[in-house]
Design a binder for these strands. Structure first.
Lengths: 198, 198
DNA sequence: CAATAATTTTAATCTTCATTAAAATAATGC
DNA sequence: GCATTATTTTAATGAAGATTAAAATTATTG
């Protein structure tokens, strides 16, 4: 957490680097992108990246850390909102969708966990599990307060996260599509949770 | 289509190879898996794979072709079933979930489209688009016959495909979890589509 | 069993890429 | 302007891994 919070204090250049890296990783995967790819997005040489980062692995690690931070913030913000648990879920979906389609955006989440070094992998998985647990707790609250349909919170959480994580695949840089995704996903994903007012 | 249909006629060994390849690609991505990785699953040398396939790219291509074939079959079978469009969607979700968690399974869908050579990429994307179109048509039918909630069929299709495609990430070889996923996803994903009988 | 075809291996080759060290350039504070 | 610090480049190095060709092995069949 402490580390994630610090991510925002990176230098401007380092920030640009992480965005470029996330972009590449999303498009071509970890092993598929060379440091040259990332560097050329910044008008730099591959070797220059080593000024900011110890090695390639650390680059993905920082991307994940950033993604975890954004996810956590979205959930934090959603939980603070007024209303039923269902309303909070909806708010979270809106916030999450928004940063998933975000412009050259901060960082989108990719599926490169296996590429991480064991310690980093453990840390990221732990952050991810914590996030899931918080979300599942929210779902349970909703079932309790009657605003969310009775369901298997673990699996429902997985389904929703899956749909969200896949978002970067739908809009291939097309911002019009991205906007549309951002606007419609929250509805679609939450409709199945809503307890119909009879 | 003709090619996809032929996939079933591969030699036993070639079949095993494709399964092993799909497994590896799912775990470590295209560039992340070496031919050695795939070969060692079969007790072979990396060079031996070249007997079955022209190069590494063709390996992913064939995996995708297989996946497309399975997806199509699931949809075919679902469409033949009795009942409302909603029932057909549910049936499709069940079939699709099943093969997504399938044992060392035929092939699970990965996100390595960018790794394909242009011609192959075009072919696979076209198959994928065709599949989406058929699914969206089914959703529209459901809206028309009143069994499915009014919704943006494009985005709803994307959300559902995203959730399905992410399935291999949830169960890490753990078959108990896999079974559970298979059993609960259809419910979860279809609940949001159902028109409540009042 | 001999002959032919099917598989797999060994042993190169060649390219791509991460990584490093040393040198060059730009920025900044004094 | 000078000294120091920050940033980037050039030029190696080394390893990993795809690919190939030729040789060895195994299976099939007449």
């Amino acid at each position: 957490m402490a580390q994630a919070a610090e991510a925002s204090r990176f230098s401007l250049q380092k920030d640009r680097m992480l965005r470029a890296a996330a972009l590449c990783f999303n498009q071509k995967g970890f092993s598929g992108t060379s440091l040259k790819d990332v560097a050329s997005h910044l008008g730099l040489t591959d070797a220059a990246l080593y000024y900011y980062v110890k090695n390639k692995e650390e680059l993905v690690y920082l991307c994940y850390l950033r993604a975890a931070e954004l996810g956590r913030e979205a959930l934090d913000e959603a939980l603070e909102a007024e209303g039923s648990a269902f309303d909070k879920v909806r708010r979270y979906l809106r916030l999450h969708s928004r940063f998933m389609v975000g412009p050259p955006g901060p960082v989108a989440i990719m599926s490169e966990i296996p590429s991480l070094r064991p310690e980093h992998r453990a840390e990221i998985l732990s952050l991810s599990r914590e996030h899931s647990a918080r979300f599942e707790r929210l779902l349970r609250d909703g079932i309790a307060d009657g605003s969310i349909v009775h369901c298997d919170v673990r699996m429902t959480g997985n389904a929703i996260m899956g749909a969200l994580n896949w978002i970067p695949k739908w809009h291939h840089g097309d911002m019009a599509v991205a906007e549309h995704v951002k606007d419609s996903f929250p509805d679609i994903l939450s409709r199945g949770l809503k307890v119909e007012a009879d």
